[in-house]
């Protein structure tokens, strides 16, 4: 089985995984944004590798430039704001919150694992048979966990984007890059961009009205005078 490991594919999978995790758990928001853009570019390399050049182009334009640009725009200082926008997530979450989220993520990963095992029986024999799918499953699990764990709105939006890319990669890995799956992924990329753009505009509106505190999610919203 060792001989069947493809160096290029494995390297790509490892890079995707490392950058996704770095992006999800970096409290420095600007750095996380750049990591997200790097992740999108790597995704487009993955599409190229999977023989979907058009999808690679769509990923660069929509995932890299437009979505990444939206996130960078979210972190630009507002013209009317006295204090600059806070680019660091200081939110602390309690241990009970963390433990429940980790348990949920484990349950979610188990469900995905079961599905994959039925779909691709050769994965059960050797996990490294399809490194990209393996990376996608881990990205989907970790992305879901990060989405549930984080309180900061921008980080949740970023987690959604990483999770989405993981889902697209799983889709392509399981169903090949046939035209219908490429169309599904393209629609998904457009939706992810529009959703991120809407979220970013919303976040800027919120910051404009209430300051950067408003970004810390639902917990702090109760403390604010309404």
């Amino acid at each position: 089985m060792i001989s069947s490991i493809n160096t290029m594919e494995s390297g790509l999978a490892v890079c995707l995984l490392v950058i996704a995790i770095a992006c999800l758990f970096d409290r420095h928001l600007l750095r996380a944004c750049w990591l997200l853009i790097l992740f999108a570019l790597l995704m487009s390399v993955a599409w190229w590798y999977l023989n979907a050049p058009w999808l690679a182009l769509v990923e660069v334009v929509l995932g890299g430039v437009l979505t990444g640009g939206s996130f960078l725009y979210a972190l630009r200082n507002l013209p009317s704001q006295r204090s600059p926008i806070v680019r660091y997530d200081h939110t602390q979450v309690g241990w009970s919150h963390r433990i429940t989220r980790v348990l949920l993520t484990v349950a979610w990963s188990l469900m995905l694992g079961v599905a994959i095992q039925f779909l691709l029986p050769d994965m059960a024999l050797s996990l490294t048979e399809h490194p990209l799918i393996l990376a996608a499953v881990v990205i989907v699990s970790v992305g879901m966990g990060a989405f549930a764990l984080h309180r900061h709105l921008l980080r949740r939006l970023m987690a959604f984007n990483v999770l989405g890319s993981g889902v697209f990669l799983m889709l392509a890995g399981m169903a090949d890059t046939r035209p219908s799956s490429q169309a599904l992924i393209s629609v998904g990329l457009v939706i992810a961009w529009l959703g991120s753009l809407l979220g970013v505009l919303l976040i800027r509106r919120l910051v404009e009205q209430e300051g950067s505190v408003a970004l810390d999610g639902e917990q702090s919203s109760t403390r604010l005078p309404s």
Partner: peptide, 27 residues
């Protein structure tokens, strides 16, 4: 805006779950 942001995030993640289901069916 806050309620809308929460709805947006949940709806987007809900749609990813939907897409994952489609992916399983397609494959």
């Amino acid at each position: 805006l806050k309620a809308g942001m929460r709805y947006l995030l949940l709806a987007l993640v809900g749609s990813l779950a939907f897409l994952l289901g489609i992916a399983l069916l397609l494959s």
